[in-house]
């Protein structure tokens, strides 16, 4: 088309129809580039909903915007967030992991059991984290080598692992975990910031770096965008795919560590429905279930949104029966808002 800009052409190569243009090609300003890579375009869309709800809550609940309460919300969103950050990779790759909640429960239980049997605290923690990675590895290998659909594979894993949790625990929580080294993970703080919150920030930073600043992240999203094309440009899909599931398994185990330490008990029914909360957080954040695009900051906002709503319901002492209705509606509204503004944007361009 006549008004489209053209890359500067070498005199020899300039075709008859190209419009000569001063070099170099127009580039978006740096700040915008940073913001868009930080939030992704879709996270930018979910932000207004989040701000609106935060504003509504700070007007209605006096205690909402206090340091104390914000710390609470941060602490409460840690468990889902940590998993959701890793799950952003899986979903961005076009996969899904439904086994994370069960992995969280099982690894927490495993760590607790080892500690109660007198294993060194740090060894027990390490073993639990490795177990999470191992569960992810098995998931990943089954999905990759046998070509099972990730949904079915991790669904089966979820059911099996929940069963293993019941067999392992006999339905009874493991308690008596008052070891101070262990308590530190879930209850300690560094310079006034709770350790779990620091862990969440750290996981976010690592994931952000991996996703946006490394070849690894580029490959993960390329696989999600067009798996066949990714294979044809020579990306080793198998290893990346498996590694992503290892990552979610590991993150689930990390959540298991933080949760168990926070409660000083490993509960068989811990982390029930976490997989759904995780998917909700990732999708609210603007990552497409079809893969290809992922927004880590969006995921963080998604997780925060759900934590904030639950917190708000408690602060306002909203009738029990309404809780689920409100949470579900807010998820729906958040994604509708996102879809609508995406459509408006598409129309405008």
């Amino acid at each position: 088309m006549s008004d489209s800009k053209t890359y500067p052409q070498t005199p020899a190569a300039s075709g008859a129809s190209s419009v000569p243009q001063a070099a170099p090609a127009v580039r978006p300003p740096r700040a915008a580039g940073f913001l868009s890579s930080m939030f992704g375009s879709s996270a930018g869309r979910i932000l207004p909903v989040f701000v609106l709800i935060v504003a509504a809550l700070s007007l209605t609940a006096n205690d909402f915007l206090t340091v104390d309460n914000i710390t609470n919300v941060l602490r409460q969103m840690v468990f889902v967030s940590v998993i959701a950050f890793a799950a952003t990779f899986v979903i961005g790759m076009g996969g899904i992991d439904l086994s994370v909640g069960a992995t969280t429960a099982l690894t927490g239980l495993f760590m607790a059991d080892l500690m109660l049997q007198g294993v060194n605290i740090y060894l027990a923690v390490l073993a639990g984290l490795l177990l999470g990675g191992l569960i992810g590895l098995v998931n990943g290998l089954l999905i990759d080598r046998l070509g099972i659909s990730p949904f079915i594979c991790t669904l089966a894993a979820m059911i099996i692992l929940r069963g293993v949790v019941m067999v392992y625990s006999q339905g009874v929580p493991l308690t008596g975990l008052g070891f101070s080294e262990f308590q530190w993970f879930g209850q300690g703080s560094i310079a006034g910031v709770p350790v779990p919150v620091l862990a969440m920030v750290l996981v976010f930073a690592v994931c952000w770096y991996l996703l946006y600043r490394t070849k690894y992240g580029r490959y993960v999203l390329s696989i999600g965008s067009n798996r066949e094309a990714a294979r044809l440009v020579g990306i080793g899909i198998s290893r990346i795919q498996v590694s992503v599931y290892v990552m979610t398994g590991f993150a689930a185990a990390l959540a298991g560590l933080l949760l168990t330490s926070r409660l000083e008990a490993a509960m068989p029914e811990a982390a029930t429905n976490y997989e759904l909360d995780v998917i909700a957080a990732v999708v609210i954040g603007g990552t497409s279930l079809n893969g290809g695009k992922a927004s880590l900051a969006g995921t963080a906002i998604g997780a925060a949104l759900m934590a904030v709503v639950r917190n708000g319901l408690n602060l306002l002492n909203v009738n029990t029966f309404w809780h689920q209705v409100v949470i579900g509606s807010i998820i729906l509204v958040a994604v509708s808002f996102d879809a609508l503004s995406a459509r408006r944007r598409a129309k405008a361009s």
Partner: peptide, 25 residues
Amino acid sequence: LRLRREQERQVTDRYASELGVKAAS
């Protein structure tokens, strides 16, 4: 492992202009 954006941009600009890719950026 780390991506080098500036280098990517240079490569993109170089080949896009060599091949005469018509695009805004």
